[in-house]
Design a protein around this nucleic acid. Structure first.
Lengths: 226, 226
DNA sequence: CGTGAGGTTGATCGCTTTCAACGGAGGTGG
DNA sequence: CCACCTCCGTTGAAAGCGATCAACCTCACG
């Protein structure tokens, strides 16, 4: 999908250590998914933990009446499905063509038991995830729509460039609906906020899935004050 | 900050919860706090991990203009401050008189390295915390004010009675402002929603800090369908 | 009994949602 | 190759929910 685009790609900036754990076992497999395929659904038995090798996936919860809350977007190096209990509590879909390593959960936990450094890695992952969710809580709970959208773009920018300055080009593998359900607003509001940032000269939108951040510092102001 | 707090000898044990880890070391201490004291603040060096033995504490983030997002309420048995990195990323206050066990973080991590079952306990705690936060995301992001308040009461009820049925009495150690900042709404809205539940006969409010859930099933309807 | 913090309730405002129309990009089939 | 279709995104207008502003109440405490 973004293979031939001239933009920053998630895999090229991997400062993360891949893969998570080196196994001799042949129990783990790498699966290839196309866009908008389900990795697992709420209620599915949590036999595997999934590591994103390439592409992007999206975890989300559904209410009975169809309302959706996107919980996270996971990029290469991220781990998904490390749950407590035996079944998944949310759904997980790919957003674009994606490579996933499936690691049997009991094998991972057994390895963690035998090799302290693996357990530490898992704990590090979990606490890092917690910190990211805490930041997102502030966005969802206490920021205006405009601030939410600006913060979202900044978070993505930080993911792909450790210290973003000046101009940064981002590719958005997710739709406006995904962003809206992540930020707790509607697609129309996402669109309006992006337009406002464009009119303000803070970003550019050459295509709907490509955002050029023209001024990171200016965007930062929008993320916490406008 | 807690240096001049009243220190109880490590031999003192809580009647409510087993301690997370039994140490021979005298490095860990139990501290007693009164209501509305700070355990730590954003930016403080994260030297300790804290276990609530008795009482309730509240973790929160602040935006530069004073807006606040409460991240969690922690009850006896809960662990606080298990962060990645060397400094705390949020603030933590007691809500009422509280006993806290302070565990040196490097000691806890060293123990986890040496004893797999301790590492597993930490990981279990982190993944349980993640699951709770995911549920809360749905509340904050996609529920109406009325649903948020009803969900909040249900979550508290589940905390204190595994399978709440019929009538449940809850004591709220947090103020309306704490609840509002937890749910991403205002104190006036919290108050109005509670009043609506009272008028509907779902709850009773003998005092402002005491909620009697008269019909848990009915409350459950309010929590996801208004 | 005065005081102040926390809580409730009412009235109004404004941001976001909802409803609706339109535009553009990509895919398909004639 | 082009007409057509559908999905996604954008923009406008109106409606509604929760925020804001304000008054009053309740209770603990000195």
């Amino acid at each position: 999908m973004y293979a031939n685009a001239n933009v920053i790609e998630p895999t090229t900036t991997s400062c993360r250590e891949l893969p998570w754990v080196e196994f001799q076992s042949n129990q783990q497999r790498v699966h290839v998914y196309s866009a908008r395929e389900a990795l697992f659904c709420e209620g599915d038995s949590a036999q595997f933990v999934y590591e994103v090798l390439d592409g992007v996936v999206c975890c989300y919860s559904l209410l009975s009446d169809g309302r959706r809350q996107v919980l996270s977007f996971s990029y290469p190096g991220d781990l998904i499905g490390l749950v407590q209990g035996d079944s998944h509590r949310y759904n997980c879909d790919t957003l674009c063509p994606t490579q996933i390593r499936c690691i049997p959960r009991n094998m991972l936990l057994r390895t963690a038991h035998e090799r302290p450094e693996v357990g530490e890695k898992l704990l590090t992952f979990a606490t890092t995830e917690l910190a990211a969710m805490q930041d997102h809580f502030v966005s969802i709970g206490r920021k205006s729509a405009q601030e939410k959208v600006a913060s979202f773009l900044l978070t993505l920018a930080h993911r792909h460039a450790i210290e973003p300055t000046g101009s940064v080009t981002l590719r958005l593998p997710m739709t406006r609906a995904d962003i809206a359900d992540y930020l707790g607003i509607t697609i129309e509001t996402v669109s309006r906020c992006l337009s406002k940032l464009k009119i303000a000269g803070v970003i550019d939108l050459p295509q709907s899935a490509t955002v050029v951040i023209r001024d990171v510092d200016n965007l930062r102001d929008f993320a916490e004050r406008d």
